[in-house]
Design a protein around this nucleic acid. Structure first.
Lengths: 107, 107
DNA sequence: TTGACATAATACCAAAAGGTTTCGTATAAA
DNA sequence: TTTATACGAAACCTTTTGGTATTATGTCAA
């Protein structure tokens, strides 16, 4: 089951809780680095690093507007991660069905 | 949007490509550490550490059987990660619909 | 009982991650 | 034109991560 390099960048991007919080924040509207940093107890360069990693994972796009950089969540990329996770749906169903059988037997 | 510590352990567990490969491997059957290590170019202690992290994230269960430890994928835990990702479904749909509008306007 | 085997536990190492401070540059505003 | 602002980039520090090698322990098998 060979995996693409791009997938690894996505998983790396969502591995950090700060970056997931940034994703949550951007889902309610586009923001500059300063706006985002204001929501965290962290310096701007630190936030900028997180944003660079999110950009590497193609989870956000950046648009230069005047002296600001507006960060916008991409509407598609997270689906790659979702699809890996969802391949276990059949596994879950099978296992939970077996568990149900065992439980019902014991009654 | 406060997040549970347990969630962080799950994301940490799936962040590493070796651990995702182990998850894939275990989805086709339970295995001992030695079995798993045979599938990787890596020493047994290294694999054992990955398994410990997967266990912390409650993605696998371990059963002591004789002198072996059998590792079994849990059928439920990955759903927490899936649910975080899936909360963006509405966002994707909205954005893609808007993109479609823009594209059609330009034609 | 003795030897082989599966794993645990520990110590150790290099590289990556996550943060800071400092300084430089481009743009906006006075 | 001068000043303030938003950001980039680099240097640096500390902790975590992912790996190794080594040694110890418990269990099976001859």
């Amino acid at each position: 089951m060979m995996e693409h390099h791009a997938d690894q960048l996505i998983f790396r991007a969502i591995a950090d809780p700060t970056r997931r919080a940034i994703i949550d924040m951007l889902s309610s509207g586009d923001r500059s680095i300063g706006d985002i940093a204001a929501g965290f107890d962290m310096t701007r360069p630190a936030v900028a690093k997180h944003l660079a990693i999110l950009k590497d994972g193609r989870l956000i796009d950046v648009e230069k507007r005047g002296r600001e950089r507006i960060h916008r969540l991409r509407p598609d990329t997270l689906k790659s991660a979702a699809s890996w996770i969802n391949q276990f749906d059949r596994f879950w169903d099978d296992r939970l069905a077996k568990l149900k059988e065992v439980v019902e037997e014991k009654q």
